[in-house]
Amino acid sequence: MSGTLFYGGTIVTQDPKYPAPEAVLISCGKIVAVGDLADIQPRADKATVKHDLAGQTLLPGFIDAHSHPIWAAKTRGAPVVDVRANIVPTYAALIGKIKRRVAVAEPGEQLLFFGLDAQLHPDMEAPTRAFLDELAPDNPLGIQTSNCHALFLNSAGFKACGIDETTPTPTGSIIERDENGVPTGKIAEAVTWTALESFYEAWGARRLAEEVEQQIRAFVANGITTVTEHLYMPFYKASYMAALTQKLPLPRVACYQQATTPDMRVEKLTDADDRLWMAGVKIHADGSPFIGNIWLTEPYLSNEITLERMDLKPGHTGGPNYPQEYFERMVREYFSAG
């Protein structure tokens, strides 16, 4: 048996049967023995790595109960420009960063900025389509909010995403428009994530594969061995299967497929090693508190953040993304499907 034998430190199991074991033996990525060192050591062979903890503490793998590995890979790393407030602290600085990136962009190059935040960019103003057209007349440009639920686009960005005045607003989505039905800059909810794919696809599969591997290794480096994919889409499967084929240290992944219609086909995911499975569906019944569309029983506060930066009206309580009958149909369909 090859593997690793851990001993010589505090071993935390969270298992009442083995509250304070002396040793743990791992083989082929699985825990095969826990208990007294004298009992376990004979099961180790010459190929087993013997790891003396030297007084350190060995913990179980952590579980990240709400994560987005593939989505995070898409929204992190070049060519996405990170403008979150911990990096770019003001809206004025954010706009300056956009101007500098546009100045060196190739004509037609798609530009995406991630991290606009009405709560943390103190001087924020909601960017309009016209304003973004002035910044980038020759490039599709998008600014995604830090909570991921909304996207601001210029005219070239709307064209790249296939959205214009004739595009119907999908059920459960928001496309803000003028009196003539022309999109004015902001979209939100499910249509946002569909629109963003036009940017990601333009950058190619290699870039995504590299970012996915970085996300996987970041989880493992932080001791996280089980994660969730809380916005799974069917085309994510290729990335996960590639990670398994390449034998990357993929954490166990519980997937929740994004549901926007009652008749969506839920992806079948099976992995003999129990590393990847479909745990359920995710329905965005309402939105995000940070863009003002969660559904509240009491209104949002009326202050500078809500009235000016988020552009909410006094007494705003948000609302559901879906009509009640439509939402109930979705719940009943997916519940009956297991």
Rank of each mutant, 00 (worst) to 15 (best):
M310N: 05
P323G: 09
D117G: 05
M233A: 12
G142M: 00
H149K: 08
P127V: 05
E210T: 02
N139V: 12
F62W: 07
V331R: 02
G9E: 07
G55W: 09
W295D: 14
K99G: 00
G292M: 10
A103Q: 12
Q56E: 11
I294V: 15
S198T: 15
F62L: 14
L269A: 02
L307F: 01
T261D: 07
A54F: 00
A272K: 12
T297V: 12
H284L: 14
L269C: 03
Q56C: 11
A279T: 03
G35M: 14
A118L: 11
T171A: 11
Y256K: 00
I26L: 12
E189H: 11
T306V: 05
L59D: 02
D178P: 07
G3M: 08
Q144L: 15
S155Y: 05
T297A: 14
P107C: 12
S239L: 14
A44S: 12
H66L: 01
M264W: 03
N86A: 10
D15V: 11
V12M: 08
N222W: 06
V49P: 00
G338A: 02
F335G: 09
G204L: 08
A279R: 10
T225W: 07
L250Y: 04
V266Y: 03
P183R: 04
G338I: 02
H66F: 02
N321I: 08
G29Q: 01
I26K: 03
A118K: 08
I216H: 02
I163G: 07
Q246C: 01
I26V: 15
V83A: 05
S155A: 08
V32W: 04
L248D: 06
L276Y: 10
R207G: 04
H66G: 08
A150G: 01
A242K: 15
P323N: 08
A242R: 15
Q214D: 08
R101M: 02
R207Y: 04
M264L: 14
S302T: 15
D15F: 03
S302I: 00
T270C: 10
